[in-house]
Design a protein around this nucleic acid. Structure first.
Length: 290
DNA sequence: GACCAGGCGCACC
DNA sequence: GGTGCGCATGGT
């Protein structure tokens, strides 16, 4: 596959890449505005290289893979479109917030897309792994996990399949500095998936509420991890994770409050941000990056 | 050295 | 159905 594709602007690919740079597993070239994407298409691990050619208002991408991939290029584009929110009307999102309290944020970050995790099962594992940890250490942990148990293809790292994670002993994850509990969560959740008790592809067809209801029944997955999966795994538009410390700090800074907001305040304010609360969340996160 | 990190489950009321 | 605590370790 080797093609160039135009998408709708505005689209701030540079800002998106800047954000993704925090993940040590990803291969990003800021000078070339290029990223290597390890993802799954129709059950096959596919490595896509994507480089921005166009402008902020008229973006286009050069998309390449190795020659002999077992899936159609249409399927690849469809997956990229999902991962990079190409069908999200970012202009409309910005307009929606024009007369909103968050207007300054949406003006500043206009065109910045929410980018999903590239692998669905990996997204859930990453969510569990990152619970309650500072970002640096969180990414160190997920990097160790993938480089120990995952696989490399064309220089890009894939999360292991759940079948592989089932075979891992808790002690092996303890050695990577997972807590006892977290190690159990990662392994047990993978066992559920392999046993067919938890079907991530099925969740993609269900409503946000149904997905949360199903996921929080799993030991090790609470509201934050479920909402995280809806945003980063399934690409849903209207999540607002009130337990997220980053969001709390984002609001504290934006409103110039002395302390972090209560859940009640967060729910109260965010009610005005439907149906784009995922974008409010993203821009609040962005706003506290130094 | 204290306190906080893009939480969660469990014990105990 | 709420509240408090332990978890692991790095950053500040």
């Amino acid at each position: 596959m080797d093609e160039t594709l135009k998408i709708n602007g505005p689209y701030n690919f540079h800002q998106a890449l800047k954000r993704l740079q925090i993940d040590p597993l990803l291969n990003i070239n800021m000078d070339e505005q290029e990223i290597t994407i390890p993802t799954w298409v129709d059950g096959y691990p596919i490595v896509v290289k994507m480089k921005q050619l166009g402008t902020f208002e008229n973006p286009s991408f050069h998309i390449t893979t190795k020659e002999d991939i077992p899936v159609s290029s249409d399927k690849v584009v469809q997956q990229l479109s999902h991962l990079f929110h190409w069908n999200t009307p970012l202009e409309k999102v910005a307009d929606f917030f024009q007369n909103n309290e968050l207007a300054p944020l949406f003006e500043h970050f206009r065109g910045t897309p929410f980018v999903c995790d590239f692998q669905l099962y990996g997204s859930l594992m990453k969510g569990i792994t990152h619970q309650q940890l500072n970002m640096t250490f969180a990414y160190t942990l997920s990097e160790r996990f993938v480089k120990t148990f995952g696989f490399e293809q064309e220089g890009a790292w894939f999360y292991p399949k759940p079948e592989r994670v089932c075979e891992i002993e808790v002690d092996e994850l303890r050695k990577l500095q997972f807590s006892q509990r977290k190690a159990e969560y990662v392994i047990d959740t993978s066992k559920r998936i392999v046993e067919g008790k938890l079907d991530l592809e099925q969740l993609a067809k269900e409503s946000d509420e149904e997905v949360i209801k199903t996921l929080v029944k799993v030991r090790g997955i609470g509201p934050w991890t479920a909402e995280n999966f809806l945003m980063f795994g399934l690409g849903r538009m209207d999540l607002f994770p009130i337990q997220d410390v980053g969001v709390q700090n984002g609001m504290k800074k934006f409103y110039n409050w002395d302390t972090k907001p209560t859940y009640e305040t967060m729910l109260d304010k965010s009610a005005n941000w439907k149906p784009y609360r995922t974008y409010a969340t993203l821009y609040l996160w962005e706003s506290i990056e130094t």
